[in-house]
Design a protein around this nucleic acid. Structure first.
Length: 542
RNA sequence: GCGCCCGUAGCUCAACUGGAUAGAGCAACGCCCUUCUAAGGCGUAGGUUACAGGUUCGACUCCUGUCGGGCGUACCA
């Protein structure tokens, strides 16, 4: 409909001699009195045409040629808005379309055929995923789903590094617990990982290998076991949340295939990297920073920026049209350097898109608390899901805009249980399912559906809301903000409930019942589609 | 000090990126279950959108400044 309106208005604008046509934007007014769609072009033209907006609006309206099966009325209002009202025939046609298209309804083709890599979670395997990782995981997965709904082929990737200092500390921690279990030693490394899961991993080693590792030279076998166990644990947790990674990318491979060296050599050739104080520096001052940045420490070990640049080059080499990175506000400072880096190397920085989300403040026992994996001071995602389930967990992370701070009150999430807003959506779906079951028993419909039987205000409102779904999804995908889908679904569920109270199906005459049943089916379908984008189940019964 | 994000109802947050009368959910109060699921509905109350200026037909949204919070600003990731 939007495209249609733009086309019609654009034609009418031909009557003016414009150097440049303004962008025609179609909006959905807040007030129903203002119609179903609205444009402000007349006001935009006031200045260039040196005329008052209402007069221009009148000229535009006079020049409009539109299909009355689609538009029933055009009005000029306020300072110069042009408001359109949709014809009922159009609404019914679109409603029928929802039922025809079914689970595909809401898909668009704005990213059709493009290959997109979404990198998220990317936590190093030092411990179980915590509630702190939850926002990243759920946001990344849902943005992936949204992109898929716009026609993209999405690959989900987990980037990690098992070669760093923290991983060695992890190995040593397991080693210490192992020796402790065998009564060999009760020393524990300073700054080691104190979590109970370390002991579990050590116990597994004892069960498998007995005392074979008592004389191990270093922490390597312990580190390897820990990595294996922890990754298995992480992927179980992700799986529980409905997240399936397509690939795991080990930072270490960038060293093995020489990409790190290659990157730094290229930057040197470009005169963007130089040696100083035993370290290798990246001339970030060339890109407007007030300081240069270290790429390789004087110890010979690269900082994370260098592999990050090499990694992004690698992604683009793999032929992705777009790489989306999901990370928390603490990484905000690094990505300009990465963009500068890949740009210098000849890649298009517009192909890298960063989704930054603000931190989750965990509130426990009424006050905020800081989590530390090392000190085993955390709430895991598994514990949270044990308490409230995967649906509520996903919903909690998605209901807010990514760039607002999210307060996650553990107690509230647990207590929320049945009162949680996610249940409102699921309940609406379950209720429709129940009604449909009853309708099937009571009626034996024959003949064609006559949707024009739907003329109650609650029915019309409901249809109009349904029709906003595709645009909502496209918008959410473009902005990488899943919460728009939730806002929409709340509206839909609310409009359905109004319909449910005002318009019965059972007991009405056959034609009306049939039409209403179709409407209810369409609502259930769109609820399912929306919930599936969010990765939340749509139960038939509750 | 500098950079990024944020400040909206008592609380947690929306507001289609500049549109018309700023909306939901909790919490509070008052009603509504012999009728398709009351995990629901209807109603009341709650706001100078942190503050002060500016831009324009029009500002929660953009600009400047102030105040407050978060995160960066490392040869940590």
């Amino acid at each position: 409909m939007k495209e249609y309106l733009v086309e019609v208005i654009s034609k009418s604008l031909d009557q003016f001699e414009l150097e440049k046509k303004p962008e025609i934007r179609i909006e959905e007014p807040n007030q129903p009195e203002h119609g179903d769609a609205s444009t402000n072009v007349a006001m935009m033209l006031a200045k260039p045409l040196k005329n008052n907006p209402r007069a221009i609006a009148q000229q535009i309206v006079d020049g409009l040629e539109y299909n009355e099966k689609k538009i029933s009325a055009v009005e000029i209002a306020g300072p110069g808005f042009i408001n359109f009202r949709f014809a009922e025939d159009y609404l019914f046609d679109e409603l029928a379309e929802i039922l025809t298209v079914g689970s595909e309804y809401g898909k668009t083709d704005t990213n059709n055929g493009s290959k997109i890599l979404v990198e998220f979670v990317s936590a190093n395997p030092t411990g179980p995923l915590t509630v702190g990782h939850g926002r990243n995981a759920v946001l990344g997965d849902t943005v992936s789903r949204l992109l898929e709904w716009t026609g993209a082929k999405v690959e989900r990737e987990y980037y990690f590094n098992d070669a760093g200092r923290q991983m060695r500390v992890l190995g040593k921690s397991v080693q210490a617990r192992y020796l402790e279990l065998l009564g060999q030693s009760d020393e524990f490394p300073e700054g080691g990982y104190e979590g109970e899961y370390i002991r579990d991993i050590a116990q597994a080693l004892v069960d498998e290998l007995g005392e074979d590792l008592i004389d191990a030279e270093d922490e390597k076998p312990f580190k390897e076991k820990a990595e294996e166990e922890i990754f298995a644990d992480i992927s179980r947790t992700l799986d529980r949340m409905g997240i399936k990674m397509d690939s795991y990318f080990n930072e270490h491979s960038l060293y093995e295939d020489g990409k790190i060296e290659e990157t730094i050599e290229k930057l040197r050739e470009l005169d963007l990297a130089y040696n100083k104080d035993g370290a290798v520096w990246f001339k970030t001052t060339e890109f407007g920073k007030d300081k240069d940045t270290v790429l390789v420490k004087s110890t010979g070990e690269p900082t994370y920026r260098l592999p990050d640049i090499a990694y992004h080059a690698n992604k683009l080499d793999r032929g992705f049209d777009l790489c989306v990175d999901v990370f928390g506000a603490d990484h905000i400072a690094t990505y300009p350097d990465v963009l500068s880096g890949i740009k210098s190397l000849g890649y298009d920085p517009d192909k890298v898109d960063v989704v930054v989300y603000q931190f989750v403040t965990i509130v426990k026992d009424g006050k905020p608390f800081k989590m530390s994996t090392r000190k085993a001071n955390f709430v895991t995602l598994d514990e949270l899901m044990d308490e409230v389930g995967a649906d509520v967990t996903r919903f909690f992370f998605l209901m807010r805009s990514p760039n607002t701070h999210l307060e996650f009150d553990i107690a509230q999430a647990k207590e929320a249980g049945e009162k949680n807003p996610v249940f409102y959506l699921q309940y609406a779906h379950a209720r429709i399912s129940s009604i449909l079951r009853k309708v099937e028993e009571e009626y034996d419909f024959s003949g064609e559906v006559d949707l024009s039987k739907l003329d109650h205000p609650a029915e019309i409102t409901l249809i109009k809301t349904l029709l906003k779904f595709p645009n909502t999804v496209a918008n959410a995908a473009r902005l990488r903000e899943p919460h728009h889908v939730i806002t929409f679904l709340n509206q839909l569920a609310s409009d359905f409930t109004s319909f449910y109270h005002d318009c019965r199906i059972l007991g009405e005459d056959e034609k009306l019942a049939q039409a209403r049943m179709e409407l209810a089916k369409a609502v259930a379908q769109v609820l399912r589609n929306g919930l599936s984008i969010l990765g939340i189940t749509a139960p038939e019964q509750m």
